[in-house]
Design a protein around this nucleic acid. Structure first.
Lengths: 282, 282
DNA sequence: GGGTGGCGATACCTCCCGGATATCGGTCCA
DNA sequence: TGGACCGATATCCGGGAGGTATCGCCACCC
């Protein structure tokens, strides 16, 4: 199976439409049809059910969609990491650390400082991304290491090291009646009248149904809370950079949040090892 | 990057010899040279240093060797799992469980029985393999799930669930003076005169230096112990199928061995989920 | 109910690229 | 110094990936 065939199949499986997929791939529709047919013949498996009105995935097709994406990510990762390794040996090597924008509190600067003080430390480029994107960035080689927050982020397929565990706070508009309380419980904040929890996008980019505004990042979220349109439960480290117009109250029985440093398995980079070591020593 | 190019590069990087690599790939040497050169040009990276007498990997080349193998495994996995998914929907679906030959004791039959009793259980094919091969089999799609033993097996890049933890015993020839002791300590068995610990192959198939015979599987190992040429520390569950001419004595301070059930991340199979559930309920 | 438009399949052509053979050039060694 | 080894280069050939034109099928609709 060639990566070209995989790319073609993934495009068709995502669009469920040969014409649009061909357009997305920058080729004409007939060669695409032929390539998919050839892939099916070589695998001996029907991947798509086509009528002249619709294209649907078979059971095997869904498997190939998931597995094919993973394989393409692995190929991309090989490409990117090879280029970066070449840069590293002929220029200034660098690590790319990715974390959710607005998260990680004061842990990140501490980590960067601690690592920078190590002998042989390399540049660390910090990449801020949206919720749920980190795993993808690690898997396809755009990032080397991530700061994740359990239980929100998935760490499947990654090596991790726990850094610290903290409680959570509910973030409210500064003037809210509950904002002056010393602490709260989940029951108190589960159904705050007029302040629903926001909805975050799923991995496919769509939003689940429900009340609450749609948000894409922390800045949006905090803005909405300040406007009195939402509330949110966040790790208590978010307090250090909270806006003046927001208040945070500890939620005693909220699940604890563990910050972990995560990296793709089989990483062999000395620089990465140094960064992880610095992180665990914090 | 196409998988063909990756396969070619991995072959050359492993052989460090264009002629032999070409032979292994079943093509002539000139197109292979050209393909590698083209890959280097497209990446903008020198992967191999060639003289007319030797070929060596650059730093970037070593990275691509590791990453490329992982990517090729992922592509193979996509291929195999797709074929199997097609079989599963048109015939009798099956799971492939892999474990070290001779390991897993009575846990494996228990697990198979418990799972078979579940509604909707599918056939479970058991694959026995050599030490250290399981991870590879999972990654390239030849197996769906494995029983591993911590801390011996690596679980990087896999999802796992712990099944049980047990102590270890030292396995000795039946007539050995220490064989009648009720228990021993690591210090007692660390340097048994004439009974060195065996050497297992590394992931690249070579054996580390040292005393002790080279072994490839448990049958070989037990044979050697019976012959009075070696001893070994194994999980105590090995006692249930120990040969008559061998004795096992608990080693109180040996590290505990944890048996885990492991599977590749992003697996979506219902059958696998059922098997894991059955395993955790044991 | 026939026209129409959308969509995947088919037919056919072109040209690039992957493969083969022959040969060159450099390096080590007898 | 000549021969053996090994990777690079030159050159040719065939398959296949990509394109355009067109067909066949079906849903929808006036």
């Amino acid at each position: 199976m060639e990566t070209r065939e995989l790319r073609y199949f993934v495009a068709v499986a995502e669009e469920l439409h040969f014409g649009r997929a061909a357009q997305r791939l920058g080729i004409a529709q007939p060669p695409l049809s032929r390539a998919i047919r050839q892939l099916e013949r070589r695998l001996g498996v029907t991947l798509l059910e086509r009528t002249s009105r619709s294209v649907t995935l078979t059971e095997a097709g869904s498997v190939l969609l998931v597995e094919g994406r993973a394989a393409l990510d692995a190929v991309d990762a090989a490409d990117r990491r090879t280029r970066r390794a070449a840069l590293a040996s002929t220029g200034r090597p660098a690590l790319v650390l990715v974390t959710k924008a607005g998260a990680a509190g004061e842990l990140l600067p501490k980590l960067l400082d601690a690592y920078a003080a190590e002998p042989g430390a390399v540049t660390v480029d910090v990449l801020l991304c949206g919720v749920g994107e980190q795993e993808r960035l690690l898997r396809d080689g755009r990032a080397d290491v991530a700061l994740l927050h359990l239980p929100f982020d998935s760490t499947t397929g990654l090596d991790t090291e726990e850094l610290r565990t903290e409680g959570q706070v509910v973030v409210l508009p500064a003037g809210h009646p509950l904002a002056r309380r010393a602490h709260l419980r989940m029951a108190d904040v589960a159904a705050l009248p007029g302040l629903p929890m926001p909805r975050w996008p799923s991995s496919d980019g769509t939003y689940p149904d429900g009340p609450g505004p749609q948000v894409r990042d922390h800045a949006q979220l905090l803005q909405l809370i300040a406007l009195g349109r939402a509330s949110a439960i966040l790790p208590e480290s978010c307090r250090v950079h909270l806006r003046r117009d927001l208040a945070a109250v500890p939620v005693l029985d909220a699940p604890a949040v563990t910050t972990v440093i995560a990296w793709p398995p089989h990483s062999r980079s000395l620089a990465l090892a140094g960064l992880v070591r610095a992180a665990t020593r914090l």
